[in-house]
C-alpha cells in the first residue's frame, strides 16, 4: 500500500503506527500534545492516544530526557521531541552521560530504548539556536546511534525502526524539508543502519544526509549538463556509519565530496574522509573534499544562504577534485 505524504506527515503516520503497535511507546516533549508540536509532527496523537501516552512536559530539556530514562528503566519506550536543535544542549549531560552509558555500565542489564527526535539544520529564516546541526556531538558519543532521514519514505519507516530498536537513537529530521512530498510504501522493509545509493554515476561520489541529500541530487542533475556523472549516496546512518558501499563507489570514481550543513572542523566529513583515505588510498585521484557550513556560529537569517552548502558549492568542490 502506498500513499503520497510530506516528510512531516510521514513522521506523524510512523509515530501513530508505533503507538498503535506497542502500548509501551510514549511520545513526550514540549507542546507535543494539544498543539501537536511546533512543526505539527505529533498532530492529533494526543487526541487519539491520550495524555498518558502523548505527554506535554514542563519546559526543561534535561527533564525530558532524564525522566524518559526512568520511564525506559520502568519498561517504556519513550520518543522524546526536542523542539529545535539548538535547545538540545540543556539535555546534553543526560544524553551523553546517562542515556548513552546505561547499557554499558550495567553490563547489559539496563536498556534505554529511547528515541530523541531533533528537527535539525537551517534554511528556514529563523532566529538564533533554531538552525543548528549538532550531529557530530552525538555521533562522537559511544552508546548512541544517530540517524537522519531525508525522504517521506525514510521518515515513515525509519522512525518506526528507531522506536522498535533497543538502542538509544538520536533521530534527526530535516526541518526545512518537512513539506517535501513523496511516495511512501507503508509496508516497505529495509535495514535502518545502512547507507543508500540514490543515483548511480561514474565520475565522482557525493555523500550527503538529511537536508543536504536534496542539494546533492540537484547538483548531480546540474552536473549532467557539464558532462559529469555523479554518484550520490544518502548516508542515513551517521553512527555507526555504513561506508562499505561508499568504498566500493570511490574505488570506481576515484573522487569523493562530502556535504553537510554542520561546520567542517571535527565534523562527520572529517571522519568520513579519514576512513575513505584508509580504505581507498590507492584509488583516489584527489583528496576527499568537504562542503560544509563554515566554522563560525550559525549566522543571522539574511546570511544563511551564504553559510549553507548549495548546489554551486557542491559543483565547485567536484570541479576542484578534477583539477587536483
Amino acid at each position: 500500500m502506498a500513499e503520497k505524504l510530506t516528510i512531516g506527515k510521514a513522521l506523524n503516520a510512523g509515530l501513530r503506527r508505533a503507538l498503535e503497535h506497542d502500548p509501551k511507546v510514549l511520545v513526550m516533549g514540549e507542546d507535543v500534545g494539544k498543539l501537536g508540536g511546533v512543526f505539527r509532527i505529533t498532530d492529533g496523537l494526543q487526541k487519539d492516544f491520550g495524555e498518558d501516552r502523548v505527554i506535554d512536559t514542563p519546559l526543561a530539556e534535561s527533564g525530558i530526557i532524564g525522566t524518559a530514562i526512568g520511564l525506559a528503566i520502568r519498561g517504556y519506550r519513550p520518543v522524546c521531541e526536542i523542539q529545535f536543535d539548538g535547545f538540545v544542549y540543556p539535555a546534553y549531560d543526560q544524553i551523553v552521560s546517562q542515556v548513552a552509558k546505561m547499557h554499558f555500565r550495567s553490563q547489559g542489564k539496563v536498556k534505554v530504548p529511547m528515541v530523541i527526535r531533533i528537527p535539525f539544520g537551517g534554511g528556514i529564516g529563523a532566529v538564533e539556536h533554531h538552525s543548528e546541526s549538532p550531529e557530530a556531538y552525538f555521533a562522537h558519543t559511544a552508546g548512541l546511534k544517530v540517524v537522519a532521514c531525508s525522504s517521506p519514505q525514510d521518515a515513515y519507516t525509519m522512525i518506526q525502526q528507531a522506536i522498535a530498536s533497543d538502542d538509544p537513537i538520536v533521530f534527526l529530521e530535516p526541518k526545512r524539508r518537512y513539506h517535501e512530498k513523496g511516495e511512501v510504501d507503508l509496508d516497505a522493509t529495509y535495514p535502518l543502519h545502512a547507507s543508500r545509493r540514490l543515483r548511480p554515476g561514474t565520475d565522482a561520489t557525493v555523500l550527503a544526509y538529511g537536508p543536504m541529500v536534496r542539494t546533492a541530487l540537484d547538483a548531480a542533475t546540474a552536473a549532467e549538463q557539464d558532462g559529469r556523472d555523479l554518484e550520490v549516496f544518502d548516508l542515513r546512518t551517521l553512527s555507526p556509519l555504513d561506508l562499505e558501499p561508499v568504498y566500493e563507489s570511490v574505488r570506481r570514481t576515484g573522487r569523493c565530496v562530502v556535504v553537510h550543513e554542520a561546520p567542517s572542523n571535527v565534523g562527520l566529513g572529517a571522519e568520513i574522509a579519514a576512513r575513505i583515505t584508509e580504505r581507498c588510498f590507492y584509488s583516489l585521484e584527489a583528496p576527499v573534499l568537504r562542503v560544509t557550513g563554515f566554522d563560525t556560529p550559525y549566522p543571522a537569517a539574511r546570511l544563511e544562504e551564504d553559510y549553507l552548502p548549495d548546489l554551486d558549492r557542491v559543483l565547485d568542490a567536484v570541479d576542484r577534485t578534477f583539477g587536483w
Binding site: 498518558d52 534535561s62 527533564g63 530526557i65 532524564g66 525522566t67 524518559a68 530514562i69 526512568g70 520511564l71 525506559a72 528503566i73 520502568r74 519498561g75 517504556y76 549531560d93 543526560q94 552521560s97 546517562q98 546505561m102 555500565r105 550495567s106 539496563v110
Partner: peptide, 22 residues
C-alpha cells in the same frame, strides 16, 4: 545503579515513578 553525576538520578527516579502511575 550508582550515579556519579550529581543529581542526575533524581530525574531517572522521577521518570520511573511516573511509570508506576502509568
Amino acid at each position: 545503579m550508582y550515579t556519579i553525576v550529581i543529581g542526575a538520578q533524581t530525574l531517572h527516579a522521577t521518570g520511573y515513578a511516573m511509570g508506576i502511575t502509568k
